[in-house]
Computed example of a mutant assay.
Amino acid sequence: MRTAPGTVAPGATGAPPPAPDARPAPRWLLTLPLMLGSGALIALQSQVNGALTLRLGTGVRASALAALVSFGSGLLVLSLLALLHRPTGRGVAQLGRDVHRRRLPLWLVLGGLGGAFFVASQGLAAPTLGITFFILCFVAGQAVMALVVDHRGWGPNGVTALSRSRLAGALLAVLAVAVSGAGLLSAVPVTAALLGLAALPLLAGAVNSAQQGVNGRLAARVGPWPTTWNNFWVGTLGLVVFLGLTLLRPGDLTGLPSEPWLYLGGLCGIGFIWASTLTVRIHGVLVVGVFSVAGQVLTAALLALLTGSGRPGPATWVAVLVSLAGAAVVGLAQRRRSRRVG
């Protein structure tokens, strides 16, 4: 049997073990609803964690505790999965051994800090900026950094050169968020302090895109479930530190509420982190991010319609169409690239 130059034939002495992602990748078309669904889970988690924050108390301290409850409950579920599902358990154990023996660079396992930083920036900046302006800045930072990550080849699927289609899709994602909150954005007074504070969500968005690239690389080494567990483990540790720091600021905690649905944020987080670690290896960081934004905008509109919290106006549905258009533009561009490469 002939082998390519520089490779070792299977079964030969010293041959490396097969990579965890050697199994066939999911079909391209089937991953599209998975990416939209991950955005929907982000929107649902935002609703759940927002309600939990209001029930826990006031100030940044309540926001930090809500995030810690979300991450901690997700970590508990994933740890039970690792105990009951032997392949996941072996993957987590192997991850721990590789980190201990320094077979993995430290930066490759710190992706979970991106989620902790997002929560910290939300607690610090969202009350002043308003949630709409905060999300707009976050998506802008996310889109710009996604272009950079893919262009530099820092993600798991190699270099994807900047193109007009990719730039247009990123701009459409930002525009969709701006259109959906146009009325609220017009009421935000623009000051030097506000623009300075806007740097936090911009940086959080950039960190989020870098996190997806890191997660994709780690998943290629150990698989998506151990990568998801690692995200929750590292994120939980980061949030413990953040919660401790918030004790130095004003705020009150009133105790844990009894409604079970307020603790579903961790399950939502498991879903979208697992989905993003799987799909980013196929589509790249930008495509996953733009589809996620489309899923968030669409789900937010449907939640408002179904819960009766406010009838979505024309601007909301225009935002939905714009976000879906952005997803279609970057998705088709990536599909054409994949066919040329393949």
Rank of each mutant, 00 (worst) to 15 (best):
L185W: 09
V287W: 10
F71L: 02
A182F: 15
R249Y: 14
P201G: 03
G158H: 03
G158I: 06
R249G: 15
A120F: 03
V92K: 03
S186N: 13
R55N: 11
A62F: 04
P24F: 00
A143K: 08
N49K: 07
A192K: 03
A66K: 03
F71W: 00
S276W: 13
L321T: 12
A116R: 06
C268R: 02
T299Q: 04
G251V: 00
A193L: 11
G91N: 00
A328R: 11
V92L: 01
H283P: 09
L84Y: 09
L106Q: 13
G289K: 12
L32S: 05
L36F: 09
P33R: 01
F291E: 11
Q296F: 12
L108I: 07
I273N: 12
P33D: 00
V280H: 10
Q211G: 01
L34M: 12
L239V: 14
P226Q: 01
R152K: 10
G153V: 01
T277I: 10
P250I: 09
L106W: 15
L278F: 10
Q296V: 09
G331Y: 02
V214F: 06
D21H: 08
L81N: 06
G310V: 04
D252C: 14
A206N: 04
N231W: 01
V77I: 05
R339E: 08
T236G: 11
T246F: 11
G112F: 00
A161M: 13
P17T: 07
L65E: 04
G196Y: 09
A161Y: 13
S46V: 13
G244H: 08
L195F: 03
A67V: 04
S292F: 15
V8W: 15
G251A: 01
A125Y: 00
G269R: 03
V222Q: 07
D252R: 15
P189V: 05
S165Y: 11
W225C: 11
L81W: 10
F117L: 14
M35T: 13
P24E: 01
R55F: 10
N215T: 00
V8H: 15
R249W: 14
